[in-house]
Design a binder for these strands. Structure first.
Length: 415
RNA sequence: CGGGGAGUGGCUCAGUUUGGCUAGAGCGCUUGGUUUGGGACCAAGAGGUCGUGAGUUCAAGUCUCACCUCCCCGACCA
């Protein structure tokens, strides 16, 4: 991508609406813009990051044997009345009446919808186990939207649902999902805590939350300084670790994922049964598994930044490399930069070429701000030595490389 | 919803206390020129119903009332 043709509206100053680090960086680096409180548009850079995250999730979900589908965002209110969650969820759900007088809502989550679907289409234990997942926009009329994408009224969620004949099956799927979640968050460059949690509104028995320590986090987690075991602040009134009696440290965290063993809560209500081997009706055992996909962006930013801007983990960076031809007067520099650009792209890398007629300082500042993992700099050093400078955004490490060896050097650095 | 803060060109803000003439600055944007390794400089421009509506006054960005929006703290959640 040529920077001059891209829509990357970076901001030199911090918009007053932003308080948390991640929110500031999202606005300054041109990832998102607010439409109204709690509602954001993803600009090209933000959209790229989102796609990267979604693809990591897809890969790991598919590896678990989950199959992707897409449910409707528009839902009939009656399914919520049927499950009894209608009153519980209350005003958090956007509701309205259409021209035919039907009572509709915008889906805040999809247990009702998916259980209804399965009830009508799965009849035999032979069709189990089954795991379905979707990546979709959810709507919640939050009491107070906050910190940009951390708590918004329209957000993207990955929600998966597992269906098993028995508890053993659920345990297996649940464990696989838990491991998949760990891999997903690690690949996103996140250092996260896994805690046993209260199933709350979802119902069911066992549940785990995935929490990212971050200054602006809204949830407090207690972590044992010795064994590292973490517990929810709400659950635990004790001041010392149950296991090793060490002191617990208080951490502010952002919840990025939550998985639940639902058991038969929904299948019983909706009579989602299958015939088992004995030929009798058996309520399907369910699990559900959520990831706040759009929320991962601020979570990643909270953990990957420095004074100059973002330091993207490689797998979720909007591009992998930015090329900075400085010394605008030199056509040799520009041409060399363009050759490197084409060369790198041919090798499958995602590259941003800063062809703008800007001062070196502007290019450096913008490059650091948007935080792509690698910078290829062509300037004074190139004129002197004929070599390009390759610089790692994260730690500032840099080396001079012959233009023809750049591709090789970069693949080494990125691996 | 309760408590606190804020709305003035695209962005950051001054001006409001004590009402006064064509509403300012920096950044950004346009044109021309000089620059070119860390947001450079010179010149000339474009861009504003001062959040909205009523009111007070000879006169309102500034005073009064109502409303709207945004941010922060609390209950809620991925």
């Amino acid at each position: 991508m040529y920077w001059s043709k891209a829509f990357i509206p970076t901001l030199k100053e911090t918009p007053q609406e932003a308080e948390s680090i991640s929110h500031r960086l999202m606005l300054r680096s041109g990832l998102v813009r607010m439409l109204i409180s709690g509602v954001y548009s993803y600009l090209p850079l933000g959209f790229r990051v989102l796609s990267k995250i979604e693809n990591i999730i897809r890969q790991e979900m598919n590896a678990c044997g989950a199959e992707e589908f897409l449910l409707s965002a528009l839902q009939p209110e009656e399914l919520w009345v049927k499950s009894g969650r209608d009153e519980e969820i209350g005003e958090v759900m956007f509701r309205f009446i259409d021209r035919r007088g039907r009572r509709l809502c915008l889906g805040p989550t999809h247990e009702e919808i998916v259980t209804d679907l399965i009830k009508n289409n799965v009849f035999s234990y032979r069709q189990l186990p089954l795991i379905l997942y979707q990546i979709q926009v959810k709507f919640r009329d939050e009491i107070r939207p906050r910190f940009g994408l951390v708590r918004s009224c329209e957000f993207i969620m990955k929600d998966a649902y597992s269906f098993d004949l028995d508890q053993e099956g659920l345990n297996r799927n649940y464990k696989n999902m838990l491991e998949a979640y760990k891999r997903i968050f690690k690949r996103c460059g996140l250092d996260c805590l896994v805690i046993e949690a209260d199933p709350g509104l979802m119902g069911g028995s066992l549940s785990h939350e995935f929490m990212v320590p971050a200054e602006s986090g809204e949830d407090i987690v207690l972590r044992c300084q010795d064994c590292g075991i973490s517990v929810s602040y709400l659950d635990e009134k004790l001041a010392r670790c149950k296991k090793c009696n060490e002191k617990l440290e208080k951490l502010n965290t952002i919840e990025i994922g939550h998985i639940f063993q639902l058991g038969t809560k929904y299948s019983k209500i909706f009579q989602a049964n299958v015939l088992n081997q004995q030929g009798s009706q058996s309520a399907i055992i369910m699990g559900c598994y959520g990831i706040g996909v759009s929320r991962l962006i601020p979570a990643i930013l909270e953990q990957n930044n420095d004074a100059n801007g973002i330091t993207w983990p490689r797998e979720v960076a909007p591009f992998e490399v930015v090329i900075l031809p400085l010394e605008a007067g030199s056509s040799k520099i520009y041409e060399t930069g363009e050759n490197i650009y084409n060369d790198l792209r041919k090798s499958g890398l995602e590259v941003l070429f800063d062809d703008r007629q800007e001062q070196a300082g502007v290019k450096f500042k913008d490059a650091d701000l948007i935080g792509l993992p690698l910078q290829v700099i062509l300037g004074k050093n190139f004129i002197k030595s004929g070599k390009a400078e390759i610089k790692l955004r994260r730690n500032g490490y840099s080396s001079l490389v012959e233009p023809e060896n750049i591709r090789q050097e970069i693949s080494k650095l990125l691996s």
